[in-house]
Design a protein around this nucleic acid. Structure first.
Lengths: 194, 194
DNA sequence: CCCAAACGATAACATATGTTATCAAGTTCA
DNA sequence: TGAACTTGATAACATATGTTATCGTTTGGG
């Protein structure tokens, strides 16, 4: 899904910058769909300002799987690479400023990159990073209770809690909105001192 | 974690075969540890016969995260690529026959591979496949109940249920052994006709 | 500025799931 | 072969979590 090399491998920034002119800057309102579930991803998306979520529809209820913020790039990776329908919808949460780089340019960029001497090494590392991210998400469900996952969010990625509506977070944590509300009130009580 | 290009990209088999002589064939008993949590992965593992699991230790209780069988290759990917301690222990479940390819040869193999014209494309595809696998595991926890996850295993990967001790499966599903037992007996009752 | 929609808290009840303990049936290995 | 270990089922109880409904607050757009 996520697929950002900018900032992770500074060495590659010059390549990336070269493609800036081909990116379309767009100012878009909140709740705007950037990619629809079932469609094939045609663009790499870079977020200059705002925030975005990826979700899928499950019997009418939306399940959010990931959040993205300023200076992050993303695409529906499998869809983008393998030309298959996207499992996810990508939608802005806040009014946002994004850049879209059409796939043909990305492919061209990849081909240029492959001339870099340690391209293989870099791409393996990026791949491992991404993989590790999703493995950690998955492991967290096996290892932690919903309450622990919420606390992990609080300590490690509190910006998500601050900016994202709570019912998106609930589905991301795999619980109901009611239960998340209960967890919050329980934790709030624990903090009170009389 | 898993990282097999053999069989996925037949084109690469000739490269792979070239490195067969450097692989050590080993016959090992059940419950043998191939890589210890906290150690850095030094080998790519290929399973000729038997089966293997990856797990981690959580406050004294083991949580299994993945199973591997015949003709699958694996390694603790992040550890192997980035030289960091492995999050997981890799252990045989059954008596197994495996091949170990030491990391230096894998690196050499990767370098040769990078000469292939569409290397970038292939490695992106492999990367997307792996990523999709873990995303699906993770999405399953958000979308499905434990009972549904068990049924998914039954219909899509029943070999796991047939060969792997049930308590490993329970932790893989993120539930207690008691609950898995209950799920099974519930499903068994549903199948009875009087 | 106002209204409809979005958001979040809470209660009440039903169900799902964990924990601990016990028992029975394999399995392994000395 | 017999004891120790492993595996799995089940009961009883406690806790976690989902569902539905209600209410108050905030928010966004005409």
């Amino acid at each position: 899904m996520l697929f950002h090399f900018r900032n992770k491998f500074p060495k590659l920034n010059t390549y990336w910058d070269k493609y800036m002119p081909f990116q379309k800057r767009q100012e878009i309102p909140a709740k705007t769909i950037l990619l629809d579930e079932g469609k094939v991803s045609q663009n790499y998306i870079f977020i200059e300002k705002g925030c975005v979520r990826a979700f899928f529809n499950n019997n009418g209820s939306e399940k959010t799987v990931q959040f993205f913020f300023e200076d992050e790039g993303l695409t529906s990776f499998d869809s983008f690479v393998n030309n298959v329908p996207s499992q996810f919808t990508i939608e802005t949460i806040e009014p946002s400023v994004i850049y879209l780089l059409p796939k043909p340019y990305v492919i061209q960029l990849m081909n240029e990159l492959s001339q870099e001497p340690d391209f293989a090494q870099m791409i393996l590392q990026m791949s491992a990073q991404r993989q590790t991210h999703y493995i950690n998400e998955f492991v967290s469900f096996i290892r932690d209770t919903p309450e622990q996952r919420y606390q992990n969010l609080l300590t490690e990625r509190s910006h998500i809690i601050q900016r994202v509506p709570q019912h998106y977070i609930a589905s991301y944590l795999g619980i109901s909105t009611v239960h998340l509300s209960r967890i919050k009130s329980k934790l709030a009580k624990g903090k009170l001192h009389f």
